[in-house]
Amino acid sequence: MNGIKTGTSQVEILLVEDNPADVRLIKETFKDFKVSNNLTVARDGMEAMAMLKKEGQYLDSVKPDVILLDLNLPRKNGFEVLEELRMDPDLRRIPVVILSTSDSEKDVMKSYDLHANCFVTKPVGLDEFIKIVMSIENFWLSVVKLPPE
């Protein structure tokens, strides 16, 4: 099953998330997914931008096919990361899934205005959370066509 990108076999995912429990849960859910993928984690907005721009120690980092982005992040928040991404000609097409505890109308609106591809609120219950992570991976890794390299 491969609705994905042409030519490559593994989908590269960048998860930008500072909550260790969420990181672990998302990592484990993705590991078991039918579509082969490689998930890299950035713990704050600055680290995410350094990876995306291959700065300093991240010279060899791979350009992700999809980004999962939390909003509430240390050092640089999710909106700032999103805004920088969308202004960068090399990064602007990468789909960004906002995954946040927020469900405020203001945050939803602002995310779409800054061209987030979709906005998902993290559910409070664990089972619900796993279900939602599974829908994200199913949709973005096997239904959608991701931008070509």
Binding site: V108, M109, Y112, C118, F119, V120, S135, N138, F139, V143
Partner: peptide, 9 residues
């Protein structure tokens, strides 16, 4: 995905 779990504004 879109009509069930996604938040739209």
């Amino acid at each position: 995905f879109w009509f069930t779990i996604i938040k739209t504004s």
